[in-house]
Design a binder for these strands. Sequence first.
DNA 1: ATCCAATATGACACATGGTTCATGTTTCAT
DNA 2: ATGAAACATGAACCATGTGTCATATTGGAT
Lengths: 196, 196
Amino acid sequence: MEASVTPKTARGEATRRAILSAAEDVIGMRGFNDASITDITREAGCAQGTFYIYFKSKDEVFAELVVEMGRLLRHALSEATEAAPDRLSAEKEGLRGFLTFVIAHPNLYRIIQEALFVNPDAYRAYFQTFADGYREALAAADAGGEIRPGDPDVRAWMLMGIAKTLGERAVVWGDETPIDDVVEAAHDMIVNGLKR
Amino acid sequence: MEASVTPKTARGEATRRAILSAAEDVIGMRGFNDASITDITREAGCAQGTFYIYFKSKDEVFAELVVEMGRLLRHALSEATEAAPDRLSAEKEGLRGFLTFVIAHPNLYRIIQEALFVNPDAYRAYFQTFADGYREALAAADAGGEIRPGDPDVRAWMLMGIAKTLGERAVVWGDETPIDDVVEAAHDMIVNGLKR
DNA sequence: ATCCAATATGACACATGGTTCATGTTTCAT
DNA sequence: ATGAAACATGAACCATGTGTCATATTGGAT
């Protein structure tokens, strides 16, 4: 297992990007095990050996995709919720932002779900970040009297579960209900479940 | 691919069971791709060839495990909820029953989650059954004025997502919070989210 | 007791696909 | 222009593991 290399050149940078992007498509579509390096490099338009210039292994490129998903999603969520005046509207905008993101990035979404089996450590790291942030936000809202008192940890997982499953309904099951309709319906239950 | 055979003898029946049970353990622990037929038959205490007497392929035994999980879980849930006088208490007892079941059958639980990638059709069939039943139960409770009016489909998915994620928290993340505490905390949010 | 279908064996044929490597090409600083 | 580092190639190596098959054993029905 050779050490992977970081590109020193615009050309190398472009190739690395092409491989990473191809990996996202191919692994997202076919799943980790059915996605071969041959498939990925064919999609990227380079030779198989080129893959190993930039990535140590198939597992490494997968791990990088998980990290990328986390980064992109955190960014999307903080943008979506930054203007929210209180916790309950942050919930609404966060859910809308999440669903919008996963519908725009179905391959990354499937990769995250598969990470539980392909790379549990990456999965944990990804999920733990969101769980921690969520719990703190809920604990703060509780302490500030914004919402009903209640276990912030269990609530954080419930809300993540709601988002995750509604995302799966859209991405995996191809449900076509408009995002805003789903958000309204879900938020009704969430807001009543959490409000004082 | 030879046709698989149904046992005609108590001996054959026992062997088939041993293989299925070993497959549950090994696939649940190591994941589908890292679980080899050799691992499964070693665990079952028979030769590799014996596997192919009773199962056409590794995929077939996996599919059967998904079906078994569905059967066992439906049974557990109907037992857990049969005495519930109304929808909201059915939710509470259903959640308790679900968590109790998955904690008792962590391997089957992981297999279901992996089915999305290993055998999407089996995953859909499993999930659709629960989604349909759930939606109908919620629609009936809504029509009967038992709960707040609202989209039964979105709600069904939200509630499944809550259960699924809390199950994952326990099984995959090893959270040790007592089931009853989790149920109480979750039910507070659910009942307020749904009640009139 | 005998026989035959059912059950069991485990070595091996075979396909797959990740990874390596010796070699070739491109880029760019000097 | 030139040399060296970066980049690219793809055939082949090699490990892995599924599924097959010729053969052996078991056990119950007659």
